[in-house]
Computed example of a mutant assay.
Amino acid sequence: MITNLVCCTGLSQESKQTRELRQKIRVESNLVVLTVTVKDDRGRLVSGLLKDDFHVFDDEVEQSILSFTDESLPLSLLILVDDDLKWKEGTQMARSVRSIIGDIADQDEAMVCRFDMLFYPGDEFTSASMKFMAALKSAQSAAQPSPPYIPQPLLTDRVSTTGPPSVSAPTYSGSRPSKALEDALYSSAQLLQQRPSDRRRIILILTDGLDEPKLNHHSHEAVRDFLLQNNISVYALASGSVKSKRKFFNLTDYSSKTGGGIFYATSTYTMELTLTRITEQARHDYTLVYAPTGNNPSSKFHTLRVSAGPGYNATTRSGYYTTSSDTPNP
């Protein structure tokens, strides 16, 4: 188990360029802030690119990039832990969740929340490592499932073949998922909505992807739009194999539309490594800022596309919404 409690020195430093960019975002309300992930044709993160390497298209109209940094903004990270997992997956997830602690930088803040059919918010966003560790320990304990129920053999009268059984047959829970994943994501987004716009807002959900639509009050489309409206990225650690993509369709849609990512793991060890990969990707994204011009003025939703040169794949959120005053949101 990874239990590193000390953040790397490199993670604790915020550059002057990033501080100036954050100030610009706070002061000017007409800006669109993009977080961009760049990978090569082998799926490896690409570093060292410059502003001139990027081209941003808003409603397919190229924009002028006003500000650029090759590092991510400080994170507002909400870790959302699935409390309703099967024994094997739940045990592995509970053991791996504390590995996140070593990837939180001094300028970041985090909150740990849980869900099953209800949503259980954390106490607060904190940048204090000991408070964060205590929250992770609590989530780890809550996410640890109870041992599976193994019924004892029933002793019955072999002579009797009529009438009801002497003991009713056991009823097994879990035949249908007893959790509201969509509502949990919506509630998480409401908490992140209150965080400053000069921070990278991220939901990191640890789940098996199962969901019961009848338990949700918010549709998939409503949750996706709310995430886009508030520039919140979804990263998912899916307990399972990439072969089960159908089960993770909604999570895949959330992650791709919001500029996040979905990763699969089947053991505690791979889950720990995957969590490190997720935080590494979020930490090494590029940040681009522009003031939209020439896009479709009659549209409330504006599509986004970013390119970063031949041989590279640049991804960001699918678009953004404008308010009634034509101000990007955000």
Score class of each variant (00 low, 15 high):
Thr3Tyr: 11
Leu5Ala: 10
Glu20Phe: 03
Gln23Cys: 02
Lys24Met: 04
Thr35Phe: 12
Thr37Ser: 14
Asp41Gln: 14
Arg42Ser: 14
Gln63Met: 13
Gln63Glu: 12
Ser64Glu: 14
Ser67Ile: 00
Asp70Arg: 10
Pro74Phe: 02
Asp82Gln: 02
Met93Asn: 10
Arg98Asp: 08
Ile100Arg: 04
Ile100Ala: 09
Met117Ala: 11
Leu118Cys: 05
Asp123Trp: 09
Phe132Asn: 02
Lys137Gln: 12
Ser141Ala: 15
Ala143Glu: 07
Gln144Lys: 11
Pro148Phe: 12
Thr161Trp: 02
Pro164Ala: 12
Ser168Pro: 01
Leu185Met: 10
Ala189Met: 07
Arg200Gln: 15
Ile203Val: 15
Ile203Arg: 01
Leu204Gly: 04
Ile205Ala: 14
Thr207Ser: 15
Leu210Glu: 14
Asn230Cys: 06
Tyr235Thr: 03
Gly240Gln: 08
Lys245Gly: 09
Phe249Cys: 04
Phe249Glu: 14
Asp253Cys: 06
Thr258Gly: 01
Thr258Cys: 00
Gly260His: 00
Phe263Val: 01
Tyr264Leu: 05
Thr270Leu: 13
Leu275Tyr: 11
Ile278Ala: 05
Ile278Met: 06
Glu280Ala: 09
Arg283Gln: 09
Pro292Phe: 08
Ser299Thr: 01
Lys300Ala: 04
His302Met: 00
His302Asn: 05
Leu304His: 02
Leu304Tyr: 02
Ala314Asp: 03
Tyr320Asp: 01
Tyr321Ser: 06
Thr323Met: 01
